[in-house]
Structure formats: structure tokens, C-alpha cells
Deep mutational scan, measured.
Amino acid sequence: DVEPGKFYKGVVTRIEKYGASINLNEQVRGLLRPRDMISLRLENLNVGDEIIVQAIDVRPEKREIDFKYIP
């Protein structure tokens, strides 16, 4: 289970102007929005990149997770 405040290694699977889709595994994925990137710009991400993200909002009833990137 993903817990708010914990850090996870994820893989960038899609990049859109509203954010990047991050997969932690086949069943768990979430969104990294541009506003939640401290020192990383969306255009510097590539599909397949592995990054460390922090879960900031977990809504299991909607199967949604928001991530934050902290270098």
C-alpha cells in the first residue's frame, strides 16, 4: 500500500502538459504535476526514466495518487 509522505521509486510512463504518469508497479500509478516538481522541469523528463517520488495525496477509493518530486 502507498502511504502519504513515503518515498518510492517509479518509472515515467507518459508525459503530458498537465504532468507525468508515474508507475510504481503494474497495479500502482499516479501523477506528478509540474507544480510538484521542485528542481525538475517536465520537459527534462523522458518516458522510461526512473525517479524517486514522494506520495503526497493518496485516494484509494478513486485509485488516484499524487506525487511530488524532491531531489
Rank of each mutant, 00 (worst) to 15 (best):
V11I: 14
G48R: 01
V47W: 02
L40K: 07
N25Y: 07
N44R: 06
L45H: 01
D36T: 02
E64Q: 11
E26K: 12
D66T: 12
P4G: 06
Q27T: 14
T13G: 05
E3Q: 14
S21F: 15
G10P: 00
A55D: 00
E16Y: 14
E26P: 14
E26I: 12
V53I: 08
P4E: 11
E50M: 13
K9P: 04
T13Y: 05
P60T: 09
G19R: 04
G5K: 04
R63I: 08
V2G: 05
R35G: 12
V28D: 06
R33H: 08
V53P: 00
E50A: 10
E61S: 11
E50D: 07
D57A: 15
K62D: 10
V28Q: 08
L24F: 05
I15Y: 00
F67I: 04
K9H: 10
N46M: 14
I56E: 02
R63H: 13
D36K: 02
L40H: 06
P4C: 13
T13S: 10
L40E: 05
Y8H: 00
S21E: 15
K68L: 10
E3C: 11
P60F: 09
A55G: 01
G19T: 05
K62S: 13
E64G: 07
I51W: 01
N44Y: 11
I51L: 10
K62M: 13
G48D: 03
E61L: 08
F67T: 02
I51E: 00
D66F: 15
D49N: 02
K6I: 07
P60Q: 10
K9N: 06
V53G: 00
Y69L: 06
L45A: 01
A55I: 15
Q54F: 12
Y8W: 02
A55K: 01
D1A: 13
R35T: 11
E50N: 09
R41L: 14
G5W: 05
I70Y: 11
D57T: 12
E16N: 14
I15W: 02
D49F: 05
I38G: 15
T13I: 09
I38E: 12
R63V: 08
I51R: 00
P60Y: 10
V47P: 04
K17A: 14
I65S: 03
N23P: 01
I52Y: 11
I22S: 01
